[in-house]
Amino acid sequence: MTKIREKAMHAVFLFSACIAIFGVLMICIFLFAEGIPALREIGVFKFVFGKVWNPSADEYGVLPMILGSIYVTAGALVIGVPVGILTSVYLAMLCPVKLYRIIRPLIDILAGVPSVILGLFGITVVVPAVRSIFGGWGSSILAASVVLSIMILPTVISVAESSLRALPTSYFEGALALGATRERGAFSVMLPAASSGVAAAVVLGTGRAIGETMAVIMVAGNQSVMPSSIIKGVRTLTANIAIEMGYAAGLHRDALVATGVVLFVFILLLNLLFSALTRRRER
């Protein structure tokens, strides 16, 4: 009797695990089955390197959007990663316990802020600020990068902090015993020792930034033209799909699915990078 129950429960657990795998597989199959015919019809090279996106004239080039996603994400990393890493070092090693009990929950709250709220914050605060400080129209790569950098902070901080905390305390104590200051111990011993975890934090943050849609649509301007300046507007891959999907039919719709394929390839590459990094840490 117990044996049967044991077996039954085994099956239940296996089934649960399979649901997630099934989901991923279905998404892969759907994306590639729907997207590849469009890629073939438009031509992979013309699609990926085409500079003009104009569905009403049947021109589908996603290079502006690929660059858009890359620029916006890179901007978010330039702002978010240094702040995130410094914060994680502070939280893991230098911060007084009392202060930690205040900062940590606040970061968790930031992690839970819905992206549309960040978008609203962007449109009422960041966009006008960019406009008055740097000129231009406000809705821009810079505005989107600032909003995204806030969004990826909790991810970067949490993953980097936990990888710092996972190190043996003897590293830090040893550094102090050898006469290093706390700061020197943190930056010269701990941070390098946790480097693969910190890198993983950056990769996860990148994934979050490149996949974000709502907040970016609200602050980026969404012009499907080649980005020419960081205070000019840009459209990301995600925004391209979200804005046009509701109206698209025929080849236009397939081209949007193919845009999803491009985005999916980016995410896959990031995930491979992430698992390579974490595997290195485990070894």
Binding site: N54, S56, A57, I123, T124, V127, P128, R131, W137, G138, S139, I217, M218, G221, N222, Q223, S224, V225, K232, G233, R235, A242, I243
Partner: peptide
């Protein structure tokens, strides 16, 4: 064929248009 300049800001809702015009 739509002749709107390609580098015009694209806002995907009335609310966002109003927010942008009222702040700029």
């Amino acid at each position: 064929y739509d002749l709107t300049r390609a580098d015009a800001d694209i806002n995907d809702s009335t609310g966002v248009v109003l927010a942008n015009v009222s702040s700029d």
